[in-house]
Nucleic acid binder design. Sequence first.
DNA 1: GCCTTCGTAGGGCAGTTGTCCTAATCCCTA
DNA 2: TAGGGATTAGGACAACTGCCCTACGAAGGC
Lengths: 205, 205
Amino acid sequence: MGASQTRQQIVDTADRLFYEHGFEATSFADIAKEVGLSRGNFYYHFKTKDEILDAVIAQRMSNTRALLAAWEQDAAAPADRILSFVHILIANRAKIMARGCPVGTLCNELAKLDHAAKNDAAGLFSLFRDWLVRQFAALGREADADALALHILMRSQGVAALATAFCDEDFIRREVADMEAWFHAQCPPPSFPVSDNRPMEPPCS
Amino acid sequence: MGASQTRQQIVDTADRLFYEHGFEATSFADIAKEVGLSRGNFYYHFKTKDEILDAVIAQRMSNTRALLAAWEQDAAAPADRILSFVHILIANRAKIMARGCPVGTLCNELAKLDHAAKNDAAGLFSLFRDWLVRQFAALGREADADALALHILMRSQGVAALATAFCDEDFIRREVADMEAWFHAQCPPPSFPVSDNRPMEPPCS
DNA sequence: GCCTTCGTAGGGCAGTTGTCCTAATCCCTA
DNA sequence: TAGGGATTAGGACAACTGCCCTACGAAGGC
């Protein structure tokens, strides 16, 4: 098997294990066993554990970019794209109730470890943030697009955190419905009369 | 020094270190060094690391109960009590931006470790949840008090998660102001005319 | 003053951690 | 078929993990 294939397998497995059990709690041996490699041979592919983490973050970055691009292609209307984002909470509800949000939990763990890669992990959030900003701007909310984007990101993080603690699927669905209602209040469909467009107010008021 | 004093010191130190660096990343040796005890002597006070965790959670439970009772005494009006809860985000902003929410991050870590105490940790959330439910019920929202309580808890978790990732104090203040606005829209002061009291709608609509 | 009890120090246990090395094996090219 | 670089297994390394034991010292009651 080629080295690049093995490397890819290592990154895929590490990605999953870092999510399921956390970065600190996942050892070289755990990854090696799942991939079917001897533990010592890791040095050939990755010099340190941090190098694996960097590779995992880089892969998540490119996967996230692909996901956002796909949403942009599947939905022509910015409003539908934003709703695509909101609905990952429901699509991934089982994983989220068991292990939380992959991005949020990684950022939290790396912040506690004062890890060098903690800002790189936060870059995953920035990917979603910037993409949401563009969608809100396309809906005519250039002035407060960033606040709106952060607000929706904040909500999805909060829902994920509580869903993990309480393992409550109904709670997820209720809050997702509430996010949709909030969004439609913020950005009503253009065919409807825009009754009360207060451009500079804080979101969700 | 009495054994109970030493035990208390161990729990206090473990509480802080579990918060700052996480449960898994904090070792017996780390706690012993800070307390000034020999590592081996731990066995006299705690048989296992999980026992320390149980003691830390128990202490957080009682501290949280005391905090909620203090808020209940300091503020006669349920509305002011709820605002006290919202404002811990600002009071603890420095700690939150550095290490996240103590409750949320612990629950997330224990969920990933499939730890036996993960439900006990989630009990800390229940403490806040039940307390908030009582406040909303006192404001005449018995029907949807639990949804309102979970909603406000969800928001504080989301704010903490993003504040850690982006280290953005303005974001915290903006979202706290937005939570206040949301709350006042949900529960307007009784001296004002209650213009539109739709009792069964989802929160934050 | 002796003796028990409480609390501690120091160290040892087996197992695991991340890291690194070397010797073997594979596959491709000549 | 022989040679050589790519890839591997296996193990060694010191440091560390949670856990456990034993011996010591300081009290306080008899």
